[in-house]
Nucleic acid binder design. Structure first.
Lengths: 342, 342
DNA sequence: GTGAAAGCGCTAACAA
DNA sequence: TTGTTAGCGCTTTCAC
């Protein structure tokens, strides 16, 4: 392994000069720089990230904590974050909780992250007070994606508004009995979006003079299978709803399946709306509230890098709450309710 | 930030003793160790990974190179790898190529990985000779997942056999006109599986006395949309095949959609088989050749860790080719061909 | 513009 | 069993 000393020896200069020349710092003749660059290239020199980190005090590494890597939403956010981090020569350290409390504990309640990374991205989780305290002690920029964490930097959508636009769409079509399929509003992996989408759902109905029916609210645990089960229990009854709002596309897919299994036609007998604009939404011709997913990862990464930059140049930096726009994508799973068709 | 010196000062011992005590090395009185542990805990000491790495010469980091993180197969492999790596206190550095040649070049043809990681996991890519040469120069354990790379450590399935079992299943049902939907056997992101699955398809037909029809082979680019397009061109003709073998479940989903769009009943008019046992395969009731995906990530991670262990203890270690079992999962998308029903 | 020397925060020989 | 002393491979003052 050739090190900076080898290069210095080769060009008969000090390692200080070689270091400066290689990093493009000022105070080096162009001639000197050229000589150094040539020698470094010739010797196949590559600096040791570890040594650079120890000497510079920066890890140039960002931790990304993900509830479940295998879910489309999370892997898409990771994709976005990786894109900007690798572009700025930062390493992305992946921590996949895989839904495990033990893993969550290990990441947040031990010294795992301490001195290991310059910044942290946390996806969708709603941190506990203790976790926030520990993250605070890290004294590093932290950004939450897809969760509302007051006082901290966040990048997300307005979940209430997203639900609202979906419900309003159904109301405009003439639906009066609208069901909700969501996820636990608390639990092992506590997310912040479900509660907001649920209240957006209820409020919009109320605003339209409709009364939310508690018996039309189901837990679909944000999975396809959960959506199918919820859909079945919702639709297999005489007074079934004419429309279902699922708080995620995956649950909406499940509802579509339940409808199909029960012989219901969509949208003639039942309308379905989701949230996400999942890569399969088009495939299922699902009407949904689209949210920019990769973009949230990108923006979050840019945010922590900006914070790091500000820190380095001594500026003071305030955590920002970024809210990205959603938009209703009308497709084939929504239409007027039965008996109200043109 | 409290460092090892602070702990040493606190207990009035040398940093060497503190280091030994904290790491559980032999040659330290239990009493001493207890004192040190207590002080470290009380002072909130956590070692600096960077310093440990520089001093020990090990990064305790494994790079995982992924063609597309957002695809189910890859994120599942990452999941498996992360599980074992985090369990052994290794960091997982994620590199997502996102299908970009530039990204691939950056990872393999620059000094990016040099001195940065102890081992590398490469998913599905078929490396070029140049890339192999560079990986070789890293002098670090490298394991390829889902690709056949002669002479290197690999973890994969027998792609020819997987295709064979799917085709044999169709033949046993009585199918004679079987189509193939696969992916480019070369290209920007060069994978090794497609070619093997294609030849497994052809060979099995030949072995059964059937002649593979080149006009029944399509490129579905391993995506749902590609599968839909391929399916449409395959099925929208009078002499359409009675069965389609898709080299991945996602393409099979696309074929199912094409069939549905064309008004074909499955499996009455058309049988479809995929490969993977994707999380949605059950949802689509798709007959498929299941492969252990997370497991491949797990085994690959275990492999590089074993290699690292062998290296550390001076044993010599030979790259192994691990082949994991596949099995046909019969579901509802396959049945006897039209006109041959019981 | 360049070099000498002192760290960065640990580990690891080698002594004691 | 414990301490002393060198590093690990860079960056960064501070001189010159």
């Amino acid at each position: 392994m050739t090190g900076i000393k080898d290069v210095a020896r080769e060009v008969e200069m000090s390692t200080a000069t070689v270091s400066r020349a290689l990093r493009g710092l000022p105070g080096v003749t162009e001639e000197t720089r050229a000589i150094v660059l040539e020698a470094a290239l010739r010797l196949g020199y590559a600096p040791s990230p570890t040594a650079v980190r120890l000497a510079s005090g920066q890890t140039r590494t960002v931790a990304v904590v993900v509830p479940y890597v295998t879910r489309w939403f999370f892997s898409s956010v990771v994709h976005g974050a990786e894109e900007v981090l690798s572009g700025r020569d930062y390493d992305l350290l992946l921590y996949n909780l895989a839904g495990s409390t033990a893993a969550r504990h290990r990441v947040f309640d031990t010294d795992l992250l301490t001195k290991r990374v310059d910044a942290v991205l946390v996806l969708s989780l709603r941190p506990t007070t203790d976790e926030l305290a520990r993250l605070d002690r890290l004294a590093r920029p932290v950004t939450f994606v897809g969760a509302d964490v007051p006082g901290w930097a966040t990048v997300r959508i307005d979940d209430r508004a997203a639900a609202r636009s979906a419900i309003q769409h159904l109301i405009d079509l003439g639906h009066q009995r609208v069901a909700y399929v969501g996820g636990a509003t608390e639990g092992v992996l506590d997310f912040s979006a479900p509660a907001d989408r649920l209240s957006g759902f209820r409020d919009t109905l109320l605003d339209a003079g409709l009364t939310p029916d508690p018996t039309l609210e189901r837990d679909g645990s944000f999975t396809i299978a959960g959506g199918t089960a919820a859909g079945r229990s919702l639709l297999d009854r005489p007074d079934r709803p004419t429309a279902v709002f699922a708080a995620s596309d995956e649950m909406a897919f499940g509802v579509l399946r339940a409808a199909r299994d029960l012989g219901l036609r969509v949208p003639e007998d039942l309308s379905v709306v989701g949230v996400d604009d999942h890569e399969l939404a088009d495939f299922f011709d699902l009407t949904t509230v689209a949210q920019p997913v990769q973009e949230q990862g990108r923006v979050a990464a840019q945010q922590v890098l900006a914070a790091l930059g500000a820190k380095a140049s001594g500026e003071n930096w305030q955590p920002r709450q970024v809210i990205l726009e959603t938009r209703l994508v009308g497709r084939g799973t929504t239409g007027p309710p039965p008996g109200r068709r043109a």
